[in-house]
């Protein structure tokens, strides 16, 4: 099911605006703790998740807001979760990195989600349900052993799982050149898992490739990987960006997925779309801010 140009733009713009607002709310003191902004990577979530069906499973990581919103999650519930409110996705218990809604899950431990996604793929295979698992990891996560344990088993047992590696080239402050020997594609191919690598932030290039790869997982039942070379325009979390500011500026000029796809739209379509999303984000954070705080429901201390 291909989405229209304006729909794709709207979801990416929604993610962008949500993340910008979340970062802004830290300075107002309404958000505490930490967050990991997806700004710059929006085309990945939208390009991949637009191809999934409601019975498919998505496992995400610390940088999960973009995946959640592309999955169809409510911005108001996510904003409330970030603010630690009872109306949050999981009632304020999980916060930014630990959410569950429908078949969407995220957790804040690097790599641990990968076998969880594989387990759900195995369950689907045993029952012949035909659904697949998609798991989003980053270049930094490729340092974790459990990822390779799972690749091996997924290939041995022919599990319907899509590994999505978003290589944003920096694990917090560590450049990928200091963390990954060999090639990322080679790591999958070593296990006999077909891997497709893209160097683009154009959602219209990611979408059809993801459609093809996911279609192949559905038809063969075998695992596959998509490696998306991407760039984040903000810090890893907050205040921990050691990259050269000029370099980041240049990346943004060249690779901004909203700029790239936005050029395809008429102003008459784009402006009302942006206005609607701006209103939605304002309302989401407003309602989240006025919601009740959670409690332990009278449980004794």
């Amino acid at each position: 099911m291909m989405s229209s140009h304006i729909e794709l733009y709207r979801t990416m713009y929604l993610i962008r605006r949500f993340e910008e607002q979340a970062l802004a709310e830290f300075s107002t003191g309404k958000l505490v703790g930490t967050t990991h902004a997806y700004i710059g990577q929006e085309a990945n979530a939208v390009g991949v998740i637009s191809n999934l069906k409601s019975e498919d499973v998505v496992w995400s990581n610390h940088r999960c807001h973009g995946h959640f919103l592309a999955y169809g999650g409510e911005p108001a519930a996510l904003a409330a979760e970030l603010m630690g409110k009872s109306t949050g996705i999981v009632g304020g218990r999980g916060g930014s990195q630990h959410i569950h809604w429908k078949n969407f899950f995220s957790n804040g431990i690097q790599g641990g989600i990968v076998p969880n996604a594989a387990g759900m793929a195995l369950s689907s295979k045993i029952d012949g349900r035909g659904s697949i698992s998609a798991v989003f990891i980053g270049d930094g996560t490729l340092g974790q052993g459990v990822v390779y344990e799972t690749m091996n088993i997924a290939a041995l047992w022919q599990l319907p799982i899509l590994f999505v590696v978003e290589n944003n080239h920096f694990a917090q402050t560590t450049p990928v050149e200091m963390a990954i020997a060999g090639s990322i594609v080679g790591r999958f191919e070593g296990f006999g898992i077909n891997a497709t690598e893209l160097f683009t932030s154009d959602v219209l290039e990611i979408l059809p490739v993801a459609e093809q790869v996911i279609g192949k997982i559905r038809s063969t039942g075998c695992p596959a990987a998509i490696i998306l070379n991407t760039h984040r325009f903000m810090a890893h979390s907050k205040g921990d960006d050691t990259r050269d500011k000029e370099m980041v500026k240049k990346l943004r000029q060249k690779y901004d997925p909203l700029q790239i796809h936005g050029l395809r739209l008429d102003t008459a379509d784009k402006e009302p779309c942006e206005a609607e999303v701006n209103q939605l984000i304002d309302a989401a954070f407003f309602h989240a801010n006025s919601a009740d705080l959670p409690s332990l429901n009278g449980r004794p201390a």
């Binding site: 076998p115 195995l122 459990v146």
Partner: peptide
């Protein structure tokens, strides 16, 4: 680790 993770799923 993968065995337990798969069991969780």
């Amino acid at each position: 680790a993968a065995m337990l993770g798969i069991a969780n799923g």
